[in-house]
């Protein structure tokens, strides 16, 4: 599965569009990690636990999007976008979406 946030692929052409696919996940923070984050907040700097949390959530969203594309028989997802929204204090939704397509080698 090729995942790209561009509209075209080098050396390949789109033969079929299969529609929008998306994957999302809602993540809540860990209270214990939050204690560390509160301390970090006095002196500023990176909240590593949060970076990791958001990253794994985003990977999960991408994986779900890929699953949906696979179920449609796609071999590539183009024009992928991410969106994040904070729902309540301590929970965020991460969304990945794109267009599932079937591509093949272009003859040129």
């Amino acid at each position: 599965m090729i995942v790209s946030n561009m509209e075209e692929l080098p050396g390949q052409r789109v033969v079929r569009h299969l529609g929008v696919v998306q994957g999302s996940t809602v993540q809540a923070k860990n209270v214990f990690r939050d204690i560390g984050a509160s301390l970090k907040n006095l002196i500023g700097g990176e909240l590593r636990a949060y970076t990791d949390l958001m990253n794994s959530a985003r990977e999960e969203a991408i994986a779900r999007m890929k699953q949906e594309a696979e179920a449609l028989g796609a071999n590539a997802i183009l024009n992928v976008r991410f969106a994040t929204s904070t729902i309540t204090q301590g929970a965020a939704e991460l969304l990945a979406y794109g267009t599932a397509v079937i591509v093949e080698e272009s003859p040129e």
Partner: peptide, 14 residues
């Protein structure tokens, strides 16, 4: 081609 991401959560100080 493949999708690459990078992220960081940064907090301000008091």
């Amino acid at each position: 081609p493949h999708l690459v991401t990078g992220s960081a959560v940064i907090s301000v100080d008091y």
